[in-house]
Amino acid sequence: MPIVQFAPLNSLVEPPFWHALTDFKIDVLRLDDTAVPVTASYSAGRSVKDRETGREISLGCNLSVNGDAYKEDLQLPPHSVPVTGIFKNFNTIEDFKAADKTVLFNSVADEIWKSIIEDRSTAQLSRFLLITFADLKKYKYYYWFAFPAFVAKPAWVIDDDWKAADEEFSEDALVAIQQDLHTNPRPFFLIRTSSGKLELAPVESYDTFFAEVPSEQRTIGFLDPSAAPSNPGWPLRNLLAYLRAVHPASTSKLRVICWRDTELPGEGHWRSRVGVLSQAAGASAEAHAKPGAVGWEKNVQGKLAPRMADLAPMMDPTRLADQAV
């Protein structure tokens, strides 16, 4: 049985975020380099059909940060769910290089684990870390994201391959899920069918919601930022860690739906995927010990190193004047 491979989240930083960072750094933070909360968002993975070859091309598994990230009342793009994270800006490139990234990473992973064990909440499952150094004079921004995800040992395996959702669920059921999530977008949810009617509930109500439901009719769902056919998105990892830690007895085998249909498919097919995941025995020995975590984002060359956004072509007044002929 193949090991489930999760598609890592990719950061997508919209230029307004860097503009906002510039103002925030100059007007509010100044030389203060304490961590600040920021909010990002992700939505279901999208794929496009290449009109020339007819193949589906999946777009990235993106977590986007926009200019509102520092604000309390940010306006989310439609169908997306918010994710809170920690943002730390360093004053010099030397500080940025010298920062103890392992400590920063572990502190975020600890916070996630604490929210699982103590609060039994899924609200912080996708918490992320962003460290930056802003070279304001050159309009260059060095940044590095980390999306901590707990490593399951032994790894999750999938019984069969991932299937299209309409092989497992009826059309009506999928429409019902779509409508529920359309009015009330949520990153993680539970699905049950009681007397022919499909119901959704937050993951926190696992015990009551699934009390009367035989295990083969239980389904775990999550809004999947990945669009790759056989790779569920990164957020599932921590959801699985949550379920194993909080409900160890009943979660060694799970049916999971990767929800990818924010809109009803017109004449196309449902994009969501369903798979039955299982974890070999021997995992739940010490359920409350924090597992190891991974999740630093790789750079353009595929190495573990920071990325850089060079906004000089779009921000530097002299260069803008050059191209405006």
Partner: peptide
């Protein structure tokens, strides 16, 4: 030259088997 030379492969101990390979839209 512009990218600070700070590749830190040791941040993550071993290759994580459950991480999908970078998904470039390959044609």
């Amino acid at each position: 030259d512009d990218i600070p030379d700070m590749e830190e492969e040791d941040l993550e101990a071993a290759e994580d088997e459950a991480t999908a390979a970078p998904t470039k839209p390959v044609a």
